[in-house]
Design a protein around this nucleic acid. Structure first.
Lengths: 140, 140
DNA sequence: CTACAACTTGAAGTTAACTTTAAGTCAAGC
DNA sequence: GCTTGACTTAAAGTTAACTTCAAGTTGTAG
């Protein structure tokens, strides 16, 4: 099974320019150009792009993703390097998750408070103060 | 209580250049310059920076944070706009958290697998295949 | 044959959030 | 009075990850 760039583009929800860019920086390899022109993709490219998307979700930068794929070519020699890389990134994602959760909590507080404010404006009642009843439990 | 830029810098773990940058783009207002020179910060700046850091954790871009502060100046007129903004951002942080969790799971799988590989290399035993026993439960 | 849509290229441009640089200012200590 | 160190400025530079552009190439439909 082969695919055109438009098919791959739709499959991953990525613009064609991004797919070409990934090839340019080495993330996609051995892309045949039929008649030395249009690109043709196969299952290995699909697998590769799936892997890329997973690593992107883990906030791994593209140059590190590329490094992973080069390490992967000599798995026996590089398993320790890969392990180290993955463990480092795991810590980073954990930190990001903690920050995100704090940010999320902050948004929820704001939503709770500005809902009260919005109600007060509609009912012509006094605007509540941020301090009024906005504590750790009031909005959970 | 007042603070120098170095104190504020240490307080928030941000370089002084960033603090100046935030003033430049309007995130920090009414920063006095003593003798029309060195910056002096007060509690309102500390509060403002705390708010900025919270919003940054919620992945709100700086221009949106700035918009929030301008809305906040006329809270009665803008509570609905603020609410809408916060709700939109809440959805975005939720999406980010889902992606991050997927990425995190991917990393854990890789760590599990490359630990096996690393062991195999050390013990001179055959390298396990990715398919061997790497399923949804094997590493949780 | 011509037009057109869907691709191609390399290079330059974009965006956010800073960071760096070069040149200058000021108060304090020697 | 000179030096030092902590600050100042405006402007230019940086980074990642794309995106856009202008100009060119193909296969196909009319």
């Amino acid at each position: 099974m082969t695919y055109t760039i438009t098919e791959i583009s739709k499959m991953f929800g990525l613009p064609a320019s991004t797919i070409r860019y990934y090839e340019k920086i080495g993330l996609l390899e051995n892309v045949e150009h039929v008649n030395s022109y249009r690109r043709v993709y196969n299952e290995t490219h699909v697998d590769r792009l799936n892997a890329i998307e997973c690593f992107k979700k883990a906030l791994l930068p593209l140059d590190e993703i590329l490094l992973f794929f080069t390490y992967e070519k000599n798995i026996e020699a590089n398993s320790d390097k890969i392990l180290e890389m993955m463990k480092k990134q795991k810590i980073k994602t954990e930190e990001s998750m903690e920050a995100l959760q704090a940010g999320f909590a902050h948004l929820k507080k704001k939503i709770y408070y500005y809902t009260l404010v919005s109600e007060a404006v509609k009912n012509n009642t006094p605007i509540p103060q941020w301090s009024d009843g906005i504590n750790e439990d009031s909005f959970l």
